[in-house]
Amino acid sequence: MKALMSLGALIGVAGLLLLGGMFFDIVPSTTVRLVEGYMPIQLLLEVACYVIGFTGLSYMMNAMGMALPRFWQGIGFWVFLMVYLKYRVYPPIPFSVRAMYGTVGLVTVFMWISANEEDWTKFKQPILNVLDAQTGGKRLLRYLYLVLLPILIGGFSFNAMMPKSEEPIELRTVHPAPPASTKVHGKTYTLQTSQNPYRVNPEGKYDQEFSNANIVEQGMGRLMKPNANPWDDKNQGYLKYVREGGEIFFQNCHFCHGDNLNGRGLHAFAFNPIPANFTDPGTIAQLQETFIFWRVSKGGIGLPNEGFPWASVMPPWEQHLTVDEIWKVVLFEYWHTGYYPRTWD
């Protein structure tokens, strides 16, 4: 047990030093990088390591007779969490989400320090000591709190009420519910049941399994499958349509959506918000192919009411492309990102 706790303490100290070093540029801030593709689970594992580290540290300090009071343990951990979220994660997390995490952190720290009577008593003791003010120092502290707390609350209230010159926050619906059907070039498509006519097997029949087997691999590198190179002239059918879709994409779409389909095109940063990142698992991977067909055809101007504030400058591509071209572009986007269109079977 002692060996395990010592190891934990070592992890804790090393982790804190590393984190501090990266914050203050003592070591390069990329010493421990959040690796694309694994970042979400890496983040959780890192926090888990710190929890283990702090447990070990607490155990060792206790064993050495230098126990950190439970009061400061609780507050210290919460402050660590907030600092970690603010400075470790890049790009910066919006305040609203940090506020949510901060509240959860505060609640769970409370649950931890009050889970049993002994811990709760330990936690309350410094507060009660100040309130009781048996010594001169504590009495001074109590008067300080009496003055500082109202000022602090007043300051927060003033700050909250003060008119701001910033643009207001947006609660944007990025993927508004599509209509039941859409009319493009005079033909009506039912979004629930329509299919991409170019997602076909060598027999010319609609076959999602066949196309799924020929998309690029997900994960690092997004490599093409063997014998599934659309730019090989010998390939016909599905892969040929992917190639044609790719040509249309690079003639029309990549200026904004980027040559890696990640929303970082040549003109992307002229827009706010920047164009959709198709490599994000929260965009086309979550949607039916017909949804993309509808959005591409109708563009930003065709967004429904719930798409307020209609922050999309994408043109209605039905005015520039044929129906077949739109379907082929959609086919290419799924092929290139390695995602499968959503289905409901």
Partner: peptide, 28 residues
């Protein structure tokens, strides 16, 4: 964790897109 986060336009710009590359994954 919300998929579409509430943020100011300045935060949106700093984030470089509507979906956060780390936390956006928790939103699905």
């Amino acid at each position: 964790t919300p998929h579409t986060m509430v943020m100011t336009p300045a935060e949106l710009k700093a984030m470089g897109g509507q979906q956060h590359p780390v936390l956006g994954n928790y939103g699905v």
